[in-house]
Design a protein around this nucleic acid. Sequence first.
DNA 1: CGTTGGCAGTCGGCCAGACAGAGTGCCAGG
DNA 2: CCTGGCACTCTGTCTGGCCGACTGCCAACG
Lengths: 356, 356
Amino acid sequence: MNDKLLELDKRKAFILATVVYEYINTAEPVGSVTLTQKYNLGVSSATIRNEMAELEAGGYLVQPHTSAGRVPSDAGYRTYVDRLMAPETLTKDDSRRIRDQFREASTELADVIDQTTRLLSGLSGNLAMAIAPSRDSHAFKHVQLIWLSARTSLAIVVTSGGVAAQRVFEWSTDVNADDLTRLSNALNSRFGGRVMEDVGSVEIDAVSAELGVSAEIGDAVRTVFATARQTDEPEIAAAGAQNLLDQPEFHDLRKLRAILRIVEEQRTLYDLIADELTAENASTPDGAPHVRIGHELRADELAECSVVTVPYRFGDRGVGMLAILGPRRMPYGRLIALASGTARSLGEHLNDVEIR
Amino acid sequence: MNDKLLELDKRKAFILATVVYEYINTAEPVGSVTLTQKYNLGVSSATIRNEMAELEAGGYLVQPHTSAGRVPSDAGYRTYVDRLMAPETLTKDDSRRIRDQFREASTELADVIDQTTRLLSGLSGNLAMAIAPSRDSHAFKHVQLIWLSARTSLAIVVTSGGVAAQRVFEWSTDVNADDLTRLSNALNSRFGGRVMEDVGSVEIDAVSAELGVSAEIGDAVRTVFATARQTDEPEIAAAGAQNLLDQPEFHDLRKLRAILRIVEEQRTLYDLIADELTAENASTPDGAPHVRIGHELRADELAECSVVTVPYRFGDRGVGMLAILGPRRMPYGRLIALASGTARSLGEHLNDVEIR
DNA sequence: CGTTGGCAGTCGGCCAGACAGAGTGCCAGG
DNA sequence: CCTGGCACTCTGTCTGGCCGACTGCCAACG
């Protein structure tokens, strides 16, 4: 890799763009003759050879071996994506399919996320992933202890994000419905309007003690608050791993295994997208898609992959992320359009429909 | 395939068992000489050849091509599993790892299921799957409408299976906490003890009408009951697909793709195990593991696979199922022991710990 | 000075042929 | 009924050679 990239004149830029385009479509290293034959360049293959040699020296192209055509490097793809590629819009057919999908989508967040990855993997022919909006720093809204029977009660904590915890408790002695109501009321007036993080166990215990409820009930309340406070594991889904089998770059079993492992390890998958989430929140304008190519992903197993990410907004529940993972040789324009379109529809769906 | 299987004399049985055993370990067709060399048979390879020819005629073995060794047929594996194989018990190491896993397992059903498949796929080196107990025909226990603010309320339905539905509603006009309580009480006394299926919308509307609550609230109550009545999609999880890449039989990309597709399509996966669930409930004694081999799975893509299933019981919430899917050439004894052991621990964990 | 056609050189992919290895079936003899 | 021996078959692998696809370089040209 070169530390100083060449400035590209117009012709070099066109040649680079054409090489990338051709390689994306054929998966074969592209040579000077192919280029002159398939594209109208106005110069001979010898000239192209000279130009390509310079592009290679500049770090945009690499040769798999002597006497093969050229293939784009990370930098080559990067330049293509940032400066050379024509932006694409959704085809009629794609937008119809996206619309149809969301028209009858579920109202359960986890299901919507899941269905979205299936849709996106189907449309893109790659691996699609999605993470649901995280629920950081929700505000406490309500707690309720409900008498179900003499020995069982239900405890519920509601935050600005919805029901954050609920659980049925069984008591060793009979409890009385009034006690539960009094405790609920006391907790509600004490914590109303606070951010969940600020509702500490010590203070909860203090309320229980003031009202003189049994230790058992005090424990239960503390437990259910603890559950509600946990920023729960972010919902994450992936679909379409089998699409990758169609790509010649994954016919190598070791690469394939690496990818499959990453997909199953939600942790890695999450990290992969989550950098983007925080970065995205901070800097880039709302909703802009982002592409990371090869080594930019900072994972050796993914050195030959690229990822397109695009955030979506879900009202007051924060920002989630859609992603498409595939070979570096992916149709960036189309995938960016697909991911953006899907993210937009997903956001609208989430905000329009009452989501549980 | 023969319609009439040979009766096996003692020596044939031993030879069949040895062929299966050897093939499971080596993944290579086994020939008569290998057999006499590695196992003490007391007869020469020529004799073995004759016996093997008869086993082939009887449908227990097949030859991939002339002048190759023999490989077990579905019937060969079946006989091995049912009659020839020595039952195995968990190794010390395996039971320790299972115990450790469940000691710190989650209390969230979906997470437990997920972690169990990871454990089981790791231990077995195959693809592991699990479905959570279904929640059919639960009994109604309690409904509660909770006043959160003048314009928002929370509605909750609890059944014998736990919290079956919950939702925050926003009203277009102010509501009054007493109305909500009165409606809750009326619904509770009306439906207490019924099976969920028998709680009809008409009757719910009748209660709302009697109390004269607003149409909006009536709708809300009907909605939340409808959600609670839905037998929700069964929780299903799978893990360890990448393990299958190690098996030579899956180096063929088409087979691999077929398997991956099945794993991603939860529907198929569910059907695969669900037959077993109903069959299991009806006939076999509690907790018995079950093996299906090759074409017994009734799916062409899985003709070269086997599945070990074992049910587990989760208190009053019904029966769930663990499964291991791998090549027919799988170590049945070990996998059966692993699946049973894991199912037992899973059942204990679910029944001991308060699961949400 | 950029461009071009030509030419030599290099390398991978593919094919045919040869060969070794593994295994079977069959037969005659113990 | 078992056994050793032998002929036969089929696969996987290795080799050498050929073809095709490129490049890089050079001398010539406008």
